[in-house]
């Protein structure tokens, strides 16, 4: 089973990389953007076949390693 996770920076955390990407896009002519925030995306393949159990495990991984909850939020995308 494959589970995907998206990690994003919390709203009040400065994202200088996102800002530079925004400025660059703006310079390329994409000038109707309000904001760009950069995040991380993970694809995790597990041997677990029970979607609920797999999701719980991935949630634990997010809390313990994949995200730093001081600055980041995580979102688990449904198992496939």
């Amino acid at each position: 089973m494959k589970i995907s996770v998206i990690i994003t920076l919390k709203k009040d955390v400065l994202d200088p990389q996102g800002k530079v990407i925004h400025q660059t896009l703006d310079g390329m002519g994409f000038n109707d953007l309000n904001e760009v925030r950069q995040g991380k995306y993970f694809e995790i393949e597990t041997k677990e076949s029970d979607p609920k159990k797999a999701k719980d495990k991935v949630e634990e991984m997010c809390k313990k390693l994949l995200a730093n909850l001081v600055i980041e939020n995580y979102k688990i995308i449904d198992a496939q």
């Binding site: 955390v13 400065l14 200088p16 990389q17 530079v20 730093n68 001081v70 600055i71």
Partner: peptide, 16 residues
Amino acid sequence: VETGLVPGVLLRNKYL
């Protein structure tokens, strides 16, 4: 900071 022994985090430098 990643162990949680001291509080906070260290982000990318402001001017990259």
